[in-house]
Computed example of a mutant assay.
Amino acid sequence: MSKNLLIVDDSTSMRQMVAFALTSGGYSVREAEDGQAALDIAKGGARFDAVITDVNMPRMDGIELIRQLRQLPEYRFTPLLMLTTESGADKKQEGKAAGATGWLVKPFDPEQLLATVRKVLS
């Protein structure tokens, strides 16, 4: 059975690149343009096996999205990955404190992304 992933990024082209890499790897993908849209989808009853989110987005950033998702019982143990241009130790620590499972830096390698997703889903 295919795993369902949610990709959250305010860049349409970035969402498309991530979606292409993941669908090529056999995953089902849904997209959201920012953290608030992603949270609305999750609260609307959609269930995902993992969430991949950018950090810097309008309305709600990725770190706040992770904090909010971790408050929902169905997302307490779901892998939540950051995929961002942010690579500073402070941001990574903030993401980890919020509940991020892992941190990938853009530009991303599609094979590395797939390997990381496979690892967190196993």
Rank of each mutant, 00 (worst) to 15 (best):
R47D: 15
T78Y: 05
D34I: 00
N56M: 15
A98I: 14
A38S: 07
E64V: 04
V51S: 01
F20N: 00
G95A: 11
K3L: 10
A32S: 13
I41S: 07
S122C: 13
R67E: 11
A42K: 11
E111C: 11
D9I: 11
T78I: 00
A97P: 07
A89D: 06
L65M: 07
L81W: 02
Q68P: 03
G99A: 01
S122A: 14
K106M: 10
Q112G: 11
Q71M: 00
W103E: 04
A98H: 01
S11T: 11
A50H: 06
L72S: 05
F77D: 15
E86G: 09
S11K: 05
G99V: 00
Y75W: 13
E111K: 13
L65A: 03
Q112A: 13
S87M: 12
A115H: 07
G26N: 06
V29F: 04
F77S: 15
T85D: 01
D49S: 08
I7D: 06
V8Y: 00
L113F: 13
T78G: 03
G44P: 02
F48N: 03
V55L: 15
P107L: 07
L69V: 08
D9E: 12
D90F: 13
E31N: 11
D34P: 07
A115R: 11
A37G: 10
R70L: 00
V120H: 08
A21N: 02
V18I: 15
K119P: 10
L121D: 06
Q16V: 05
F20L: 11
T84N: 14
A100K: 02
V55P: 07
S2V: 10
G99F: 01
A32N: 10
L113G: 05
Y75F: 15
L5F: 08
K96T: 14
F48A: 10
V18K: 05
F48P: 10
G95M: 02
K96W: 08
A115W: 03
I63S: 04
I66N: 04
D54T: 03
N56H: 12
Y75M: 07
L39S: 06
R15V: 14
G35F: 11
G95F: 01
G102I: 01
P58S: 02
I7R: 04
A98F: 07
L80H: 09
A89H: 06
F77N: 15
V51A: 02
T78N: 04
S87N: 14
N4K: 15
L113S: 07
I66E: 06
P73K: 07
V120E: 10
M57K: 05
Y75I: 03
T23I: 14
D49G: 12
I52P: 04
R70K: 13
I7C: 12
P58Y: 00
L80E: 05
E94S: 13
K106R: 10
V117L: 08
N4M: 02
A21K: 02
Q16D: 12
L114A: 08
A37W: 04
R76Q: 14
T12G: 12
S24G: 14
T12D: 11
R67N: 09
I63E: 03
L80A: 08
T101H: 04
A32G: 09
S122N: 15
S11M: 12
V117Y: 01
R70I: 00
L81E: 02
R67G: 04
M82F: 06
K3G: 04
K91F: 01
I63C: 03
A100M: 06
T23C: 06
D61T: 01
D40W: 00
T84Y: 12
K96R: 15
D49M: 04
A115D: 10
V8G: 08
